[in-house]
Amino acid sequence: MTRENLVNILLAVALLAAPLAANALGQAFYVTLATRIAILALAALGLNLALGLGGLVSFGHAAFFGIGGYAAGILAAHGFSGEPILFGLPGTVQMPVIWLVAVFTAAVVALLIGAISLRTSGVYFIMITLAFAQMVYYFAVSWPAYGGEDGLSVLVRNQFPGLNTMVPLNFFLICYVILLVAIALFALIRASRFGAALQAARQNEIRVATIGIGPFRIRLTAFVLSATITALAGALYADLNRFVSPSMLSWHMSGELIVLVILGGVGRLFGPVAGAALYVAFEFALGSLTEYWQFVLGLILLGTVLFVRGGLLGLFAGKARHG
């Protein structure tokens, strides 16, 4: 077993054990905090697929995170009120249906955004993804139907067959299982022919093109897949907070997702988990210490980029193998 695998297993076990222990001690809040970590890790894992494997630095993944969130919010609002959404289609409060809608919507939007954005590269790609996310953001802020800037409240968490999702531990377990499935999927993709081509396209575009693989289609597929995972996380996030608002779509959110990926280690299987855990822990611990906590957070982030190359996993598990 390699050191990285060991660290990964430790992370997975810790993320499960901590909320179980908190729950046994009656500290429901820490279960909620662990749920937040799991969901942010899932969102960052989505980004890691595009960014870590494909080298596609998307500065607009908040758009997909928010689309997932709004899919959950809007469907639930209609599910409660019984009013149809469009053309007589009903809303729903069933999580699996909501997840499907979130994933499908994000896929369609990502296909559009990706098709235009992937014509560019480098800094232009960073900026055009940002621009598309800003469009979605301003649309959500100004569109009055679903709360605009005030956002949309989901009073009761959506339902999952056979589980009471309002019990914090149950909801955590749902998110945890989805996270593990997504991590497994990520590992499969990374090891597949598609994953190899994607990584090769990152490392040497011309060589890939000369052996007859079109980098554009590979990248577009990766971008869409990446968006759907982040959107799924967005739908869960809406259920965690029982609330969605345009701030899920803001460029700060895009920035935070990138921060999570880099903190943990770009392209690493469990990087997003490590990054999300560290970030949420910092935000939580510093926030109650000083009102200037963002200053300290900034210093820590800066220190990580400058001196801890490869993120947390790079620190604890050594350099990534080139695969």
């Binding site: 809040f29 909620t32 905090l33 937040r36 907070n241 609330f243 608002s245 899920m248 939580f284």
Partner: peptide, 12 residues
């Protein structure tokens, strides 16, 4: 001034 953070603090 972040809604999600406010929710988290309220939960805590």
């Amino acid at each position: 001034q972040k809604p999600e953070l406010a929710v988290q603090i309220a939960d805590k």
